[in-house]
Design a protein around this nucleic acid. Structure first.
Lengths: 107, 107
DNA sequence: TCCATGTATTCGTGTACGCGAATACATGGA
DNA sequence: TCCATGTATTCGCGTACACGAATACATGGA
């Protein structure tokens, strides 16, 4: 494992942010924080097709935002780092404050 | 200004994350945190074409991540909320830790 | 081995993004 | 008004993403 240059780190950084840039993935991360789950259960709970959930989980896994653990035929997904939820919550608060300052976000 | 539903908030949340999901925009935000600047100076400092910087700034402005202030013909861009930098730094730390745990992020 | 359960992948399609190049627009001074 | 400076937008193109549908793959039990 090499130590990445600043540009490489910025690129990885952007990749992680991009992974967060989809509403379904945000819902998935919050759901996994509440309780690790296997794919089908997650699909049921969030009312999404199983292949859709699987694809999004693959992206999150590739970006190291979630981890997996096999259990028979099922694969349990966990949030990789609970600080991710803190980050998401912080962003949400900044967003709420921005809305409160009557920007044109909702147009 | 209405208060958004959970889904609307999640969508706005994703929009903000998506705005962070580009390496050039991350560099722009860090640069603006260091010092508010007008577009051309930012373009010079970051070695990007002026239209490119302008387009990225428009996206960041639309997502309420930066604010503007006219000064003659120039437009000074400011970071809207310094907490954004905290968030980015936190993400970067999580990313560094993930790399240290030898995931396959660099493949 | 065959089947059931659960997960991942492929295919085709429509949409959205990012860019370089060129150009339009806005502001202020002569 | 005309020009210079600085900023925003349009156009065309190539790429990347997200989806539904269908299907392939993996695991464990009978």
């Amino acid at each position: 494992m090499e130590s990445p240059t600043l540009d490489e780190l910025t690129l990885l950084h952007a990749n992680v942010c991009q992974a967060l840039g989809d509403p379904k993935r945000i819902l998935i991360l919050y759901a996994l924080h509440e309780q690790p789950r296997h794919v089908s259960l997650l699909a049921d709970d969030l009312d999404m097709p199983q292949p859709t959930v699987s694809r999004h989980l693959a992206i999150l896994r590739q970006r190291a935002l979630v981890t997996t653990q096999r259990e028979g035929t099922a694969v349990i997904y966990h949030l990789a780092d609970s600080r991710i939820i803190n980050i998401l919550n912080n962003m949400r608060q900044v967003l709420r404050d921005a809305i409160a300052h009557q920007t044109t976000l909702l147009s």
